[in-house]
Nucleic acid binder design. Sequence first.
DNA 1: AATGCTATTGCAACATTGTAGCATTTACGT
DNA 2: ACGTAAATGCTACAATGTTGCAATAGCATT
Lengths: 160, 160
Amino acid sequence: MIMSFSKGSVRSGNRAAKDLIADHGGRVTRTRVAVIEALQIAPAPMSHEDLGAALAADDIPHDRVTLYRALDWLVEQGIARRIAGSDRAWRFEVVRPDSHRHAHFHCDRCGRVICLESLQPSSAVSLPDGYQLDRAELVLHGACATCGDGPGSDNDPGQH
Amino acid sequence: MIMSFSKGSVRSGNRAAKDLIADHGGRVTRTRVAVIEALQIAPAPMSHEDLGAALAADDIPHDRVTLYRALDWLVEQGIARRIAGSDRAWRFEVVRPDSHRHAHFHCDRCGRVICLESLQPSSAVSLPDGYQLDRAELVLHGACATCGDGPGSDNDPGQH
DNA sequence: AATGCTATTGCAACATTGTAGCATTTACGT
DNA sequence: ACGTAAATGCTACAATGTTGCAATAGCATT
Ligand SMILES: [Mn+2]
Ligand SMILES: [Mn+2]
Ligand SMILES: [Zn+2]
Ligand SMILES: [Zn+2]
């Protein structure tokens, strides 16, 4: 039997996109596969716009709505995670077996978001009676290394 | 000399809206005053939509855009604070002299947001080199007391 | 390999939340 | 009471999603 690796085999901890989809009882479609693979190689959470551009760059035909629905499904299935920034655009990251929930840094100048894997929102918070905690989102705001350089340099380096 | 209190004199710690505006060098306008007063009596952060409804209920004519601009100005001046929920709508709260930045709870079922005044995002986080922290936003997600009651009761009690 | 079922897609229309430009009005210092 | 810049109130426009529905295409079965 021949074992073949999917073309973008990426880095350790990532499962083949197709298997991941099939194992969750979904149909393996062009857009789903492409989105998972894009998220797996991404160094940071990607917005819907980022993903659309990534697919386009790979000549993968896709529809805006389909992309939204693919992402919804991935999140429902626990394959991806949704992150709300301070702009109104969600960003997505693939859920890796090793990594847990973590905080994010959102650069208010260029809009880039980076993962702070080592910073996990403390879950031991006391809520009012009757309130049920599902998850905590911690987003730090400020200027990233690139943007913080020149004082007052509010550049927008392509990335959004 | 006669000392008159503004009609909605509200609760301790709140300054008269007009003074607050004037002290920041702004012009005292209908919408600004109404927004501040609405936020001062509000038990929880209000969305733009909430505020529009509140003004309408008080028969205060206002324009959508003007409301947005009033809120922008209040935030710029540090009179109000903007909170990003997980829906795409910002919410606003007045900055009281006593209270500091704090976390919020966002009910994913009814959309209500409540302040967790006692929970302040820890500011002692270590960021990558060159990153500059401005502020931290911590939002807890789950079900509020009202929504958590009946299992699976995803009601939407008017409040959004 | 062809068939059938239904999960997904693709398109067009719509919804929500916010911005931009610009002529008109209004707050307020004089 | 006046003059003037700050705010307003329109009308458009932009960004980000969602809904409905007919057409398509995965994939299990034959
Ligand atoms: Mn992350
Ligand atoms: Mn609050
Ligand atoms: Zn940046
Ligand atoms: Zn609720």
